[in-house]
Simulated scan of single mutants.
Amino acid sequence: MALNGMLPTSDYAEDQPLFHFILTAHVMHRTLPIGAFISSAIPLASTFVLRRATVYPITALLLRSNSTGALVSLGIGGAMTLGRMWGREDIEWKDRSWRLLRNTGQTQLDDFSAAGLAVGAVLGAVGRGPLPLWRGVVGGAGLGTLAGTLAFVVWKSTLGKKEQ
């Protein structure tokens, strides 16, 4: 599992290093596909349901909307973590981080989503059209996390069940 290989984990939760970073990054990463879904629905509905004329091609519209949605999602994820964990003891942060790293299903989902993020960022940079590079990369990364999450759901509902 790539996540376990990249992030240090300990044998016991109370010894977990980087616990603040791990938990915050996890929640922020998990908010990206939700933001991508919402950020994709808006331009798609505007274009296809409301039949509004578009200035950009649909790919550029999606990248533009998702670049904003990704930044908003990251902010919301950070605020959610801060709000939920405010005033909590370090052992609670360590325990939650340790459990995330030890949960096979969660690390598989994170791996799929992270792979989608990387591929999406590259594809967004290449296919951004008239958009600035940062919009292509960030928008593609957001869309990639959604694609990775959906790929995980399909994989888990078909091939992943054979592993159990």
Rank of each mutant, 00 (worst) to 15 (best):
Y56D: 00
S157N: 01
S157Y: 02
G144V: 05
T107C: 03
P57R: 03
N4A: 10
L133I: 04
T68Q: 13
L32S: 13
T54Y: 09
G105N: 08
S97L: 10
R52P: 04
A114I: 03
L18Q: 15
A45R: 11
V122I: 10
P43V: 06
V72I: 15
T149E: 08
T158K: 09
T59H: 10
G5C: 13
Q16G: 07
W98M: 02
W155T: 10
L50K: 13
E14M: 14
M85G: 03
F19N: 13
D90N: 00
F21S: 08
Q106E: 14
L63R: 06
A25M: 10
N103R: 06
H29Y: 14
G105W: 02
T47V: 15
E89S: 15
R128I: 03
S10E: 04
D15S: 08
M85I: 07
L100G: 11
A151F: 12
L61C: 07
A121K: 01
I76M: 04
S73N: 08
G5K: 11
L150P: 09
A147W: 11
L71D: 07
Q106I: 08
D110L: 02
T31W: 14
M6G: 15
W155I: 05
A147E: 12
M80G: 12
S67Y: 09
L123V: 11
T107W: 00
I76H: 12
L123E: 05
L101Y: 02
D110P: 00
G127S: 11
W98V: 08
L82C: 07
F19P: 10
T104L: 09
D90R: 00
Q106Y: 14
M28P: 03
Q108A: 10
A41T: 04
M28N: 14
D110A: 08
W93Q: 12
T107I: 08
P57Y: 09
K162L: 11
G124W: 09
A141S: 10
Q164F: 03
L117M: 06
G116W: 03
V27N: 08
A25V: 03
L63G: 00
Q164V: 15
T59I: 10
L7Q: 04
P132I: 00
S113W: 06
P17L: 01
W93S: 14
Y56W: 08
A41W: 03
S67V: 04
K156Q: 13
V49I: 08
P132R: 03
A147C: 14
Q108G: 02
A2P: 14
F152I: 04
L71Y: 12
F37D: 10
R88A: 14
L146Y: 04
V138P: 01
I34N: 09
M1D: 13
A36H: 06
A125M: 06
L150N: 12
H29D: 05
I42N: 02
R30K: 14
R99M: 03
R99W: 05
P17R: 01
T47Y: 15
S73H: 12
T24A: 15
T107N: 06
Q108T: 07
L62P: 11
R30C: 11
V119Q: 04
A70N: 15
L7A: 13
L62E: 04
V27E: 10
G77C: 01
G127A: 01
D15F: 14
I38P: 01
F152E: 07
Q106A: 13
T31V: 09
F112M: 10
T145N: 02
S67M: 11
L3K: 13
G124H: 08
M28W: 07
G5T: 08
T31M: 11
P43W: 09
G75I: 03
V137G: 02
L150I: 15
I58F: 06
T24W: 01
A115C: 02
